[in-house]
Structure formats: structure tokens, C-alpha cells
Design a protein around this nucleic acid. Structure first.
Lengths: 339, 339
DNA sequence: GCACGAAATGTGACCGTGCACATCGAGGTC
DNA sequence: GACCTCGATGTGCACGGTCACATTTCGTGC
């Protein structure tokens, strides 16, 4: 009865139309919830779609609309918790919006590989790009490529406001720094992330602002690469000098490396040095000692990225421009200075 | 001169054809490296393509070939190192093969969300699916959905050989277990992963095989969920009993939780209990104590997944059926038993 | 010099959808 | 009742490739 359309090929709107006794255009209207469709007609069409297990052909739709309903994510260091969580959040938010996510990995930060990765996404004709990578360079490359799709990243308050989502990384940096100052620390280092990551730059800015606001003499931040290995090496160096009592690390992995180095050098956390991380990775409460850190809401972040990208400004208009507030999680890696 | 085709719209093969003085079909042949194209013709066409910055339209190609040159990845717990690394590796291998990767996240393990995630990928008409999730359930869902695309996962030697890539997880489990036995341990627990993850099942099998091969009495494995939190809770429980001197954990995160619990209960690693993990996450060397664990080559794994999926059997034919050998990394969380 | 097959290239249809425009009928206005 | 409006639906084409088949070009043997 209903299998006249089954010649090995998936049913299309014309098959549905024929079975429902309407034109293919009416079926198309039902698909796109066009307002002027009689309820009875819509129901009949939907019933047929369900019956024949109709699934719209994305390629055909993309061809005619030249919009793929796909969001591209340009990712770097994606096996790390922060980037991985962001991607996951973007994926979830996109799925809710009916969008697919394609990712493109950045093997290194050379100009060529950035261009290659962006082109890889463009060949899919993505409708927008989220950058989770060294944003400054990537943005430059994107602008040079004359990309016509919107692109965003995660940050707050900076030079790239047009392309940024408001997570208040600066506030997070201040939160962490203030916590250390309130504990009585006056000699505080900051282990920052790579400076062409906007998050890293914003957290560092938070550190500097809070230090100067509280009139604590500031030392130059150390520029790291997000990895625990780097944290370890930096920690070994720092313990040679030992002119500080606390370190604010720009992410939890580097904080872990720091703790390791401090212990290897025969000192204790938090007795000799207090450590604050950033991200609150799921392992942070199980570090030794459990890590004081700053938590951010990745899911909300992902939703806002996608919303911004799709120009879906009606979503979350209230407080949309406002930032997501990061939260300080106090555990056992911080305490008052020993001297 | 060359901008007659620029009416705001990207150039297509007919534009290229006109400028090169050939038919659109010839351009198509050049694109698909058809053998019977004269070199001079090919060069002329390629020159024009380059000049007008031609980029083939993926949607149009997908429409007519009903192949999207996209690989779908069904992921779960993707913010964890293992899954995240696998996805990254798959992404890299796919890019080399000219394929794009779309991911679909599994918010939970319910039947409905599995079906939804699979359909999400199918709507993209992916050419194949890699499952990094509770494979057993997902495979069942895929089979029920009568999916026509190939799908694979990561494992070795099991019931699903048709759909698996040969990483010898069993060997990895044996390696870890043998290390503990050789150190003199006789009372060894295994903290396994969720049993519908094939990796988890294989590592557990490795544990059981090695234990019985070496004539060590075996205890029933504890079934975990991959998280450090679970490791911690399990550790607290286990330390109540304390009828063991070593634990082999199915991943590094749970091992971290175990160490935390052991220390919280007033015991020491490795003095009182030896711990072996699995994965060698980048943080493992910086745990306290640095974690003895098993490393696997994710990149090679990703390449093989993609190769298998694309039926690209000429790639790596030598040793293709053979397994990737995991490697034991001995650090400081293991030592001889105290008694 | 011509027949012949293979190599090289061209022609037209088709994939499944959305868009612009045409059509049709019902109801309101005068 | 002629006219207009507007809601509901239908018609034909365009999107940018590939495929099957037709046609032209070219080298070769006799």
C-alpha cells in the first residue's frame, strides 16, 4: 500500500506529497512551519511523513538555501578539559537549535595550519565558526581570508567585542587573586596561559587589576602553555627563588604541575605556597591537596556562543550582555602565608 | 576581466568551464581526477580554478552522490581525556582523508537519547559512524534503526569484531595486572569501567586472564563510571575492608580518586596500596604520587578507525589486523606490598 | 586514405529542496 | 453581484554538482 515509493531510495517530499494528496510545495511548507497551512492539511502531511519515515535531505536543503545548518568549531588542545567542555557545550546547544557541529583541529599554531583548518570548515559551508584556539591569530587569519560567515569566541571586555561572548574571565581572575590577598598573601605570582588566547589574557588582566586595586605590588606574569608539564617546569624554576607565598595559575592543569614541583622541591602546599587554579576540572577535588579554583558554567557559555552566532538575540535577552559570573571554589590548596 | 562570474555568488563548475573554454563535465572530471583528461586541459582548468578561487560545493556533490564525505562521531563523556583524544585523532585522520567530522553528544545513556543522537548524525547523511560511548547499547540501537552506513568502535577481540579496531585493550589490562603480580601482590582488585563500554570490558578481561594465568585468586571487579568521584567513593568503601594491597583502575581518573580516598583514610600510596591506571593522561606524571599507567597510541587508533570506516584497506595492510600494543609506564604509584 | 577503436570531451537529465509567482476559492464591502 | 483581499495551495525553475550516454578527436594498421 504505502510502499510504492520504496524503490531502495529514501522518500522525498514529492513522495510524501503524492501520498498525502497535496503538492510538494505544501509539504515543504509544513516542514518549515509556514503559517498559512490548514491544520487538517498539516496533520495529514505529518502523518504520511511519519508513516514513510521521511527525513529531509540536508544536502538538498543546503544546496538551495546555501546555508548548511552546521556550525564549525575551530579547536586546539581539545583533549584538555576546558576546550573539550566548551565543544561539548556548543554541541549540545547547537543540537537544540537544530544545528550540526563540525570540528576542525589545529595541529599547531602556524599560519598555514590555521588557514587550512578554516578552509576545511568553509568547504562545508558552515554558517558560523566558534574559535576555541589562539583567537588573536585565528581571527587575523579569518579576516584575511575574507570569510563571510560570523565567528565568535569566548571572552569578556576586550578589543574583540564584536566577536565575543560575555563570560567574565576578568572577574574570575580577580576572584582568585582577591582570595589570595584576603588570606594575607602579598607576594603573588601569576602563571598565565598563552597570550593569544583571549581567556588567558583576560584572566591575567583580572589578576593585574585586582593586585593594583588592592595596592599589592605586582610581579610580571609567567606565560605558560596550559599544560601540567609546563606548570611543573615553571614551579621548579620558581622554587629556586622562592620570593612569593602564592601562585594563581590560569588553569587547573598548570596548577597541578606547580604542586608537583613544589612538593618535589621539598615544600608543602598550602603551608609554604598557596595555589589557585582555574576551570574546576572534575579531577580538581581529588588533587593532593584538593585544589582551590574558579568554576565557570560551560553549558551556559556554549548556549550563548550558539545564540550569538545564530543571531538568536531573542534568547536570553535579559542579562545577555551581562556576564556569566564565575564562582570561586575554595578547597585545600590555599591558606594563610607562613610568614 | 576575470570577474564576469562575480555576481556576489561563488563560482561554480560552469563558470570555470566557460573561462577555461571547456564543458562543465570536463571541469568535473578534473575535480575527480578522471584518467582521460589531457594534461594541457587539466592544467588550464586548474589555473582557472585557482584564479577565481573556485571551491567545490559540498552540498551539491552530496545531493547527487548521496555521500557527504563526512564521518559522524557518537561521543559520550567527551570532556574526559580518553574520549576527547580519540575524537581528536579521528578528526585528524579524517582531515587527511578529505573527510569532515560531525559529532553528536550523548547526554545520557537512555535509549531515546541514543536514537536521537544517531538520527542527528544520519540527518547529515554521514558516510560512517565511530562510536565512542557505551558501545553495546549504541550498537543495538543502530542495528534496530536499520542504519545503512558502516560503524566501528575501538576494542580488540570480542563479539563485535566486524565493527572493531584492533587496539589490544586486553593486552593492556594484562600488562598492568602482571606488573602488580610481579611486584609480589596477591590481593589485587580491579576497578573497571562501565561494562557496556567495550574498552572497559576488554581491560577487565585482561585483568581476569592474567590473574588466572598466574594462578592468583581473583576477586570480582568493581564496576565504575570512569569518574574520579566514583574512584574516591569506591576507595573509601574498599579501605574499610582493606583485604588487598593493590588496585588496577581502568582509567587514570578513577585511579586519582582512589589515591585521594586512600590518603583521606590515612594510608599511603604505594606503601600501603599500589595503584595502576590506564590511559596515561598528560596529568598522570604530576599526580601525587606520579601514576603508573598504561599508554595507548590514540593517533594510530584514530587513523585505523577512519581507514576501516572508509574501507581503505590498502592503508596499513601490514599488521592491520594486528593490534596496537599498549605500553606500561611505570612511575611511583606502584611498589612491593608491605606485608 | 580510410576504417576503426580508444581517448577526450560534450550534452542533457537528475538529485531533493526552497523560492517566486500563479491560481483558486471564500468572505467582506459597496 | 462585481470587486477586492487574503488565506491556502499549486507550478515551474534554480541550486551545483555527477552520471549515462552521445559525439568528436586522434593515433594506428592496412
Amino acid at each position: 500500500m504505502s510502499d510504492d515509493a520504496e524503490r531502495g531510495r529514501a522518500p522525498n517530499i514529492r513522495d510524501v506529497a503524492r501520498l498525502a494528496g497535496v503538492s510538494h510545495q505544501t509539504v515543504s511548507r509544513v516542514l518549515n512551519n509556514h503559517p498559512s497551512i490548514r491544520d487538517s492539511t498539516r496533520d495529514r502531511v505529518l502523518a504520511v511523513m511519519d508513516e514513510v519515515n521521511y527525513r529531509p535531505n540536508r544536502a538538498a536543503r543546503a544546496l538551495v538555501t546555501s546555508r548548511s545548518r552546521t556550525i564549525g568549531v575551530l579547536a586546539s588542545q581539545r583533549s584538555q578539559y576546558g576546550p573539550a567542555s566548551m565543544i561539548q557545550a556548543i554541541e549540545n546547544a547547537s543540537k537544540d537549535a537544530g544545528y550540526l557541529v563540525s570540528t576542525s583541529n589545529l595541529p599547531d599554531t602556524s599560519e598555514e595550519s590555521i588557514v587550512a583548518a578554516v578552509e576545511h570548515l568553509l568547504s562545508q559551508s558552515v554558517d558560523g565558526i566558534v574559535v576555541i584556539a589562539p583567537q588573536v591569530r585565528v581571527f587575523r587569519a579569518i579576516e584575511e581570508l575574507d570569510v563571510r560567515v560570523p565567528f565568535v569566541t569566548v571572552q569578556s571586555g576586550g578589543d574583540l567585542d564584536d566577536h565575543s561572548i560575555g563570560v567574565d574571565q576578568v572577574a574570575g581572575g580577580r576572584l582568585a587573586t582577591r582570595h589570595l590577598i584576603e588570606l594575607g598573601h602579598r607576594n603573588i605570582y601569576h602563571l598565565a596561559g598563552p597570550q593569544d588566547w583571549i581567556e588567558a589574557e583576560a584572566r591575567m588582566r583580572g589578576f593585574l587589576v585586582e593586585m593594583s586595586t588592592q595596592d599589592v605590588p605586582t610581579t610580571a606574569p609567567i606565560l605558560g602553555d596550559w599544560t601540567a608539564d609546563f606548570g611543573y617546569r615553571a614551579g621548579i624554576e620558581l622554587m629556586r627563588v622562592r620570593d612569593f607565598t602564592a601562585i594563581f595559575s590560569s588553569n587547573d592543569q598548570m596548577a597541578l604541575g606547580l604542586i608537583h614541583a613544589i612538593r618535589d622541591e621539598g615544600y608543602d602546599v598550602p603551608r609554604d605556597v598557596s595555589i589557585v587554579g582555574f576551570d574546576d576540572i572534575p579531577e580538581a577535588p581529588h588533587f593532593w591537596p584538593p585544589l582551590t579554583t574558579v568554576r565557570q558554567d560551560f553549558d551556559e557559555l556554549g548556549r550563548r556562543c550558539v545564540a550569538r552566532l545564530l543571531g538568536n538575540l531573542e534568547v536570553d535577552t535579559v542579562g545577555y550582555r551581562g556576564s556569566i559570573d564565575p564562582e570561586l571554589i575554595i578547597r585545600k590548596s590555599t591558606g594563610p602565608p607562613a610568614f
